[in-house]
Design a protein around this nucleic acid. Structure first.
Length: 528
DNA sequence: ACGAAGTTGCGTCT
DNA sequence: AGACGCAACTTCGT
């Protein structure tokens, strides 16, 4: 090297710049994306860094206990998903430790905590996965604004999903695509996962005065003395995710010929799908890596199965909190529906067709209750609940957007029966019905009293009578949906408050007919 | 204007 | 198991 050669990057020698700026401190802020593999934010954070601080902030908004909620957990999350998160964090910490690092856990408002840490640790580079959810956007923008104003490099890649939603909307001329086919045609192939497996990480720097916690237990989060009969059988974390993926891929025929609508929603001992959704939700498994694995298998086996916001007007849903609670608490009197709601509560997961059944029942099929009420229950209890997917699916199932064939209503009795004629699924999740003969298990109110007595299950006492008569209720729902759609059509989608009130009045006038479909719900709901 | 398609309905008949 | 009628929605392409 010649003497007097000029530094390649003059910025490094600016007056006032502290020495060693080429080896900066970096901070990787984990929220979702709880994994080492295919993690672009982590990969970028480690490069050119003297020290790397891996941080997770326990956010009271999601985690503080709320005893007034309808199930154990916080205001926004059932205990199953909190447990899943904690397990994922323990696993992430152990993955980081294998690479000579560790997870630094803090508790508090994430914006305040992260900004404090950026200052305290003299961080020059902040990396975190881009998150589209509204709460996350507000949170992240505050941190990003501070960092940018302080001259901190911010790297925030889209890696939770296969595609960047903003790109998709841009490609479609500023509007979200409304059908799956148009979406597929638009997006093309996703980016490949990172080729390089992360095999080293910079050491964690001096943590200073701020004591990092280890990952807390459920009890340490304040969930003391919680009793739950049955916890979700699905354990969180990247290791379990990759193991589950590997096991799923071993059955090549099954993967290659998988067709989603053909899955059996009543299968629970060996679920009919991969149950990778909770791992994708928390980013324990990379969606891109999953996609690549499945496509590599497709290439290998040759023959395989192939692959929101023009709202349909506002529908004046029926506001009935008793029926809503009966649905939520698995007391509709339809064993197929109630068993699914018990699985949701106990496991935090059910087959997607089971989700369809209960979502249709709550909204356009039977109870005609607003889809947002159901969405909130799912959002809380599912271990895989993802804000965008959950909202989108409820819009879909309630025929509020994307899907419009409201005459196609799932039967709360025959739909389950065709997969599970013996009712094993019902017997497992509703043990009160376990001795009901299979002839009556989907419609136990039709069983003669002698049979009910023999089965130790008196309908109306041990298990509720149906809250609605499905035949009448579904006909009513069809009629109401028809009226709402007709109004939407005549007003060209611009339904005014006045129009809506008119429709509401009209539907309420007909409510006298509608009340016939209710089987004295007051009595029924207060039982069992 | 018309027909075809749209991620996954039910009941009945063969 | 597969075809058909049921009753019928919206969107998109021609």
């Amino acid at each position: 090297m010649r003497t007097g050669s000029f530094p390649q990057n003059p910025a490094l020698f600016c007056p006032g710049t502290p020495p060693m700026t080429s080896k900066r401190n970096s901070l990787i802020w984990f929220r979702k994306g709880l994994r080492i593999h295919d993690n672009p934010a982590l990969d970028h954070a480690r490069r050119g860094s003297a020290h790397l601080y891996p941080v997770f902030v326990l956010d009271p908004y999601f985690l503080d206990p709320d005893t007034s909620a309808f199930s154990p957990g916080s205001a926004r999350s059932g205990l199953n998903r909190i447990q899943f998160l904690l397990e994922s964090l323990v696993d992430l910490d152990s993955g980081l430790k294998k690479l000579g690092s560790r997870l630094l856990v803090f508790r508090g408002d994430p914006v305040q905590v992260v900004i404090r840490l950026l200052k305290e640790w003299n961080v020059g580079k902040l990396c975190f996965e881009f998150d589209t959810e509204p709460y996350s956007q507000v949170r992240d923008n505050q941190v990003k604004d501070y960092a940018s104003a302080s001259g901190i490099e911010v790297f925030s890649p889209v890696s939770h999903t296969l595609f960047n939603p903003a790109d998709v909307i841009k490609k479609n001329g500023g509007k979200p695509p409304l059908t799956y086919q148009s979406f597929v045609n638009l997006v093309g192939q996703p980016q490949s996962p990172l080729a390089e497996m992360i095999s080293w990480l910079p050491p964690v720097g001096n943590v200073g005065d701020y004591e990092a916690l280890s990952v807390p237990t459920i009890k340490e989060l304040g969930y003391e003395g919680i009793s739950q009969e049955e916890f979700s059988p699905f354990r969180g974390g990247e290791s379990v995710a990759l193991k589950r993926l590997k096991e799923s891929l071993e059955d090549e025929d099954w993967v290659a010929n998988f067709e989603k609508p053909k899955g059996d929603p009543s299968a629970f001992l060996n679920p009919a799908t991969t149950v990778l959704s909770p791992y994708l939700k928390f980013g324990c498994l990379s969606s891109r890596y999953f996609y690549q694995c499945v496509h590599d298998l497709y290439k290998k086996v040759k023959k395989h199965s192939s692959p929101p916001v023009s709202l349909a007007g506002q529908i004046p849903w029926h506001d009935d909190s008793e029926l809503l609670v009966a649905w939520r608490e698995a007391r509709t009197g339809y064993p197929w529906i109630d068993a699914i709601m018990v699985q949701l509560r106990k496991w935090g997961w059910m087959h997607h067709l089971a989700r369809h059944s209960v979502a249709c029942f709550l909204t356009r099929g039977d109870l005609f209750i607003h889809w947002e009420r159901g969405r909130d229950v799912f959002e809380r209890l599912l271990i895989d609940s993802d804000w965008a997917i959950n909202n989108g699916n409820w819009l879909w199932l309630s025929c509020s957007s994307f899907f419009y064939q409201y005459n196609r209503i799932y039967s709360p009795t025959s739909f389950g029966k065709k997969y599970d004629p013996n009712g094993n699924y019902i017997r497992h999740f509703l043990p009160v019905l376990k001795d009901m003969p299979k002839e009556y298990i989907y419609e136990p109110w039709t069983a003669p009293l002698s049979i009910q007595t023999k089965a130790n299950c008196i309908i109306g006492k041990d298990y509720p009578k149906p809250v609605v008569d499905h035949d009448k209720a579904s006909k009513e729902c069809r009629r109401k949906m028809g009226a709402a759609y007709a109004l939407n059509r005549t007003t060209d989608g611009l339904v005014s408050e006045n129009d809506l009130n008119g429709l509401r009045r009209k539907l309420e006038e007909d409510e006298s007919h509608a009340s016939q479909f209710r089987n004295q719900k007051q009595k029924v709901i207060n039982q069992a």
